[in-house]
Design a protein around this nucleic acid. Structure first.
Length: 419
RNA sequence: GGAGAAUUGUCCGAGUGGUCUAUGGAGGCGGUCUUGAAAACCGUUGAGCUAACUGCUCCGGGGGUUCGAAUCCCUCAUUCUCCGCCA
C-alpha cells in the first residue's frame, strides 16, 4: 500500500509509475482518484450529521435527568439515524472499492531501478566465481539424481501430483545439511534470530505481505478454514509484528526461518517442467528485516550479501541481477535476484530474490515504530530475501559437483553436516 | 468436539442505557524538594481520519435494538477452566 496522500496530491507521478512498471490497463488510476474524492466528500458529510446527532442526544439526556420535556427535541433527531445508516452503507461500499483499488497500486520504485519492460532489461551488477569446467558434458540434475536414485520424480507424481518429487538418501540428507548450514551461517555470523512459526496463515497475513488479494490463484487456500499454505516464510516472518508499534531501540530486527513453501504455479504450465526448478513444494531459508527507513537501502545491500555468502561458501558461481522496472514485483521498491550457474541446464537460475519493500508492506500490515519516546508512530521499512531456496540450491550442487561417473563430490562446507 | 467464564488504553482494573471527550492504580515522561538518589507532592501520558477544529471514529471483530450503547440482543474470533480426543 502506498501513501494515500499520493493519490490526492500526485496523480501524475502515480501514472508515470504505473507506466514504468508496464501496468497500464491493470490499474485504473483515474477511477481510484474519483472514488477517493467521493469517499472524502461523503465521510465529511456523515461526520457533520453524526456531530448533530451526538449533540442532540446528549441534550436529551441532560433534559431527562432534569425532568424536562424532550418530545420536541426528539422529533428533530428522529430521521437522522436512518439517514446516517443509509449514508454509512454507501460509505462502506465505497470504502471497499477504494481499499480494493488501493491494494492493487504497486510500490514506488527506487531511483536506481533501470527502466525496462521485462527481464530482458534487467542489469547484471556483479558476478562471483567462474563457470566450472568439466572434462565431460555436464548433465542436468534430474538426470544425475534419477540415475543415482536420490531424486524420484515418478513417485512424487504418484503420491501427489505433477511437480512433486521424492528425495531418497543423499539428496534428503544434502538438503537437510544445506538448510542447517544456511541457518547456522545467518544466525551465527549475520545476526539473525531463528524463528519457527505457522506454515498455514490467515487472509490478513497473506494480504499484509501482498499475496492477497491480487494473486489468489497462485496459492493453496484451505477454504473450509479460511487459511492458506504459505508460499514463503516471508509471510510468517513479516506478520510477526503486524499491528504492532516497535521502539527505535528494537531496530533493526533481523529474523530468519526455514520452512516448506507451497505454490500452485498456476500459469506456469509447460515452463520448467522437469526437475527441481519449478515445483509445488520446496524448502527455503528466508531472511526478513524490520528497519529504520533511513537505513533501508544499505540494509538491502547487506541482506543481499548475506544471501550471496551461502553460494560463496558452497563455491558456486553466481551473478547478481538488478531487476528492471517492468520485472520488479508490485510490492517491491527494488529487487536483486541472485542467480546460480547451472552447468547441466546451461543457464543461470534464480535462487534468491532480495527486496526492499520500503513502507509498502508496513502500511498494509500496520507495522510502525517510534523514533523516540512519545513520538508519533511511523511506518518502518521491511526487507526480505531468500537465503536460499534449498531445492534449487541442491540442484545447483548436484550439477556443479557431478563427476561424470555417476557420482558426485560434496561441498567442503557441508561435510561436517553429513557425518 | 461439549459445558462454563472471560475479552476495556503500555499493564492491572472500575464501569451493566444518558454530560464516558472511560473512575482508579502501576509503569513511563516532565517538574518541585534534595549535594545526588529514593520517598512525597504536582503535572503529563493510546491510535486513526481531517487543511484544521471546542469535529468524527475506535472499550476483541461484524451486525442489530435505541433519540442515545463499553453497558441490551445476535453472531464470529480468541483466551482460561473442566470434560472428550490426540503426536
Amino acid at each position: 500500500m502506498i501513501d494515500p496522500k499520493l493519490i490526492r496530491e500526485d496523480l501524475e507521478g502515480l501514472r508515470r509509475l504505473i507506466e514504468k512498471r508496464n501496468m497500464t490497463g491493470v490499474v485504473d488510476i483515474d477511477y481510484l482518484k474519483e472514488i477517493s474524492d467521493m469517499r472524502k466528500e461523503l465521510s465529511g458529510r456523515s461526520d457533520e450529521l453524526r456531530e448533530k446527532r451526538n449533540r442532540i442526544s446528549k441534550e436529551i439526556g441532560i433534559r431527562k435527568s432534569k425532568g424536562g420535556d424532550t418530545e420536541e427535541i426528539m422529533k428533530e433527531v428522529q430521521g437522522i439515524s436512518d439517514e446516517l445508516k443509509k449514508m454509512d452503507e454507501e460509505i462502506n461500499s465505497i470504502n471497499e472499492k477504494y481499499n480494493e483499488l488501493h491494494l492493487t497500486i504497486p510500490n514506488i520504485l527506487d531511483e536506481s531501478v533501470p527502466e525496462g519492460k521485462d527481464e530482458k532489461d534487467n542489469t547484471v551488477v556483479r558476478t562471483w566465481g567462474e563457470k566450472r569446467k568439466f572434462s565431460f558434458t555436464p548433465r542436468p540434475h534430474y538426470d544425475i539424481g534419477t540415475e543415482m536414485n536420490i531424486l524420484d520424480f515418478e513417485r512424487g507424481t504418484k503420491i501427489a501430483a505433477a511437480r512433486f518429487y521424492v528425495y531418497r538418501g543423499l539428496a534428503a540428507r544434502l538438503e537437510r545439511a544445506l538448510l542447517n548450514f544456511m541457518l547456522d551461517l545467518h544466525t551465527g555470523e549475520h545476526g539473525y534470530t531463528e524463528i519457527f512459526g505457522p506454515l498455514i496463515v490467515n487472509d490478513e497475513s497473506m494480504t499484509a505481505t501482498g499475496q492477497y488479494p491480487k494473486f489468489k490463484d497462485e496459492y493453496y487456500r484451505l477454504e473450509k478454514d479460511g487459511l492458506s499454505l504459505i508460499p514463503t516464510a516471508e509471510v510468517t516472518l513479516t506478520n510477526l509484528y503486524r499491528d504492532e508499534i516497535l521502539e527505535m531501540e528494537d531496530l533493526p530486527v533481523y529474523v530468519t526461518m526455514q520452512s516448506s513453501c507451497f505454490r500452485r504455479e498456476a500459469g506456469a504450465a509447460g515452463r520448467d517442467t522437469r526437475g527441481l526448478v519449478r515445483v509445488h513444494q520446496f524448502q527455503k531459508v528466508e531472511l526478513v528485516k524490520f528497519v529504520d527507513p533511513a537505513t533501508s537501502s544499505e540494509e538491502l545491500e547487506k541482506l543481499t550479501a548475506n544471501a550471496e555468502e551461502v553460494l560463496k561458501r558452497l563455491d558456486l558461481h553466481y551473478r547478481v541481477v538488478l531487476l528492471s522496472s517492468g520485472d520488479t514485483s508490485a510490492s517491491s521498491s527494488k529487487t536483486y535476484d541472485i542467480e546460480v550457474w547451472m552447468p547441466g541446464l546451461d543457464r543461470y537460475l534464480e535462487v534468491s530474490s532480495c527486496s526492499n519493500f520500503i513502507d509498502y508492506q508496513a502500511r498494509r500490515a500496520m507495522i510502525r515504530y517510534r523514533e523516540s519516546k512519545g513520538a508519533k508512530p511511523k511506518y518502518l521499512h521491511t526487507l526480505n530475501g531468500s537465503g536460499l531456496a534449498a531445492g534449487r540450491t541442491l540442484a545447483a550442487v548436484i550439477e556443479n559437483y557431478q563427476k561424470g561417473d555417476g557420482t558426485m563430490d560434496i561441498p567442503d562446507v557441508l561435510k561436517s553436516y553429513l557425518r
